[in-house]
Nucleic acid binder design. Structure first.
Lengths: 149, 149
DNA sequence: ATTGACCCTAAAGTAAGCTATAGGGTTTAT
DNA sequence: ATAAACCCTATAGCTTACTTTAGGGTCAAT
């Protein structure tokens, strides 16, 4: 029932994901997003699966994966014959551990910022005596923020 | 009682935080970490407050703050007269919101990777039919990962 | 049939965040 | 007193991830 066979050009795809035409072409040179069909005029043509893949790329990028890592993740999917289940499981396991570490770090720094935020009056006076700045200057920041170093 | 007045040279400071001498000097050129005293020979001298500040820098970097943003955060602390409480509170509030968004994104992609991880047998055979790859290929990835785009 | 909004390639340029090189002084241990 | 292990400045080079420029076709509407 649903119209899932839509074909779109690069500008439309870029718009759909809030990216730019240039960036998508750049991703193509990096092997991240290949358009396998072209119009008569040589225009790149994309479909919903490209949209899916591009969304994955952008989401992964947003959380700190490099284009190289993303390519590898996508490559696991594309070159199935070249990878064992063991390899796939090991790699994703590592990535999960990295993500967990990153979440912990974010929560730690969030705690510090929140503490600063809550302690500040927020008024229009000069921040000379503002507790938010005292918090930032306090040495427990090094304990809290630098401990996992 | 505790020995808190230690003074160290750049190599020691770098070692303490697991960074390099070159990086610390680079941060100095960027205005992130200034050593205000030098030895007779012109060697940079640091103390515990530098260590605190450097730990903050590295932690913030680790969670995705740019050096420019970190400089601003540190600047709030250093140039107190130039900022109002309101400004400080607004800025930290924004940063907290960014961190929250990032944590949500990380948890979303973590969920997908974990689902893949759990679904894979992990054996030594070729991954041609491995469910982990099917998961990656599945279109619900775009729903789950691209929805907040 | 021409104008404006698209599309193409190839290549150069940019910004962030380091990293390395060159050339030279200093400190410390033997 | 000399060699290894440090420190200094200045500058060039590198990687990542785009962005811009130049020069040119295509398509849809007027």
């Amino acid at each position: 029932m649903s119209e899932n066979s839509a074909v779109f050009k690069i500008g439309e795809l870029a718009k759909k994901v809030g990216s730019t035409v240039e960036t998508l072409r750049f991703y193509e040179t990096k092997g991240l997003l290949q358009s396998h069909s072209r119009s008569a005029a040589g225009y790149r043509l994309y479909n919903d699966s490209h949209l899916t893949q591009l969304s994955f790329i952008l989401q992964a990028k947003k959380v700190g994966f490099s284009l190289k890592e993303i390519k590898y993740l996508l490559g696991l999917n594309l070159a199935k014959e070249a990878h064992t289940c063991e390899e796939v499981k090991t790699y994703t396991g590592e990535k999960i551990a990295e993500i967990d570490a990153k979440i912990r770090d974010l929560q730690s720094i969030r705690g510090s910022l929140h503490q600063m935020y809550e302690a500040c009056c927020g008024g229009t006076e000069k921040a000379t005596h503002c507790s938010i700045l005292h918090t930032l200057a306090a040495s427990d920041l090094s304990t809290e923020l630098g401990a996992r170093q």
